[in-house]
Amino acid sequence: MPGTPTPSAPESAPPPHGEGVAGDEGAQRSLEKAWPSDLPVDDARQLLTAGRALLRADATGVGRTQWPEVFPSPGQAVAPAFASARFRIQAAIARRDGSPGKAVVHLVWAGTDRGGTFTDLRITDWHFTRTTTKKGAATWIPQPRI
């Protein structure tokens, strides 16, 4: 019927699978709406940088030596599950994880695996604890997966 509005997905719904880069902004908005910010901006920025680097290292094998506490076998050859060129982070948020000294970085990502299968809207969480360095600066330490 002309002039009848087309129903649209709720604003907080994630984009449909296979939407590509065009869906990334929707995925980010959906995360932010579902889980309101609760960390200071500097902490969130530090956590997001580390979370993205950890995910890239985990998925592609690139940069694992930077995280020996998470990837304890630096001398062992790693066959990456995803090629760097076929991997992208679609959305990411950092939030408290039960207390001010714990946080989680929630990432939504897409990639093509070694077998050629593309999947988007994958979800990975990295958990962190806050520590203080000898110089008194606070920093976030990633927790190994169990």
Results as ranks from 00 to 15, higher is better:
E25Q: 04
R29Y: 03
G26Q: 08
V108P: 14
G115M: 12
P72Q: 11
A83Y: 05
A44C: 06
A27R: 00
F87Y: 04
A103H: 09
A94Q: 03
A9R: 03
T112N: 07
G75T: 08
T49K: 06
G51S: 08
R122D: 07
R52D: 07
G18Q: 10
R95L: 14
H17I: 02
E11D: 14
G3W: 05
G18W: 11
G23T: 00
L31F: 13
Q46H: 01
P142V: 14
W140N: 02
E19Q: 09
T6V: 15
T6K: 13
D113V: 03
L54A: 08
A110I: 08
H17C: 09
S73V: 15
P14Q: 02
P15M: 03
P16E: 14
L48Q: 09
P144A: 05
D113N: 08
Q28C: 11
H17V: 01
M1W: 15
G3D: 14
P36I: 07
P2S: 15
A27Y: 08
A77L: 11
L48I: 08
R122G: 07
G98L: 07
F128W: 05
E19M: 13
A92I: 14
D120M: 07
L55T: 07
V104A: 12
L31S: 07
D113I: 01
P10N: 11
A50F: 02
D113T: 00
E19N: 05
A94T: 08
D43W: 02
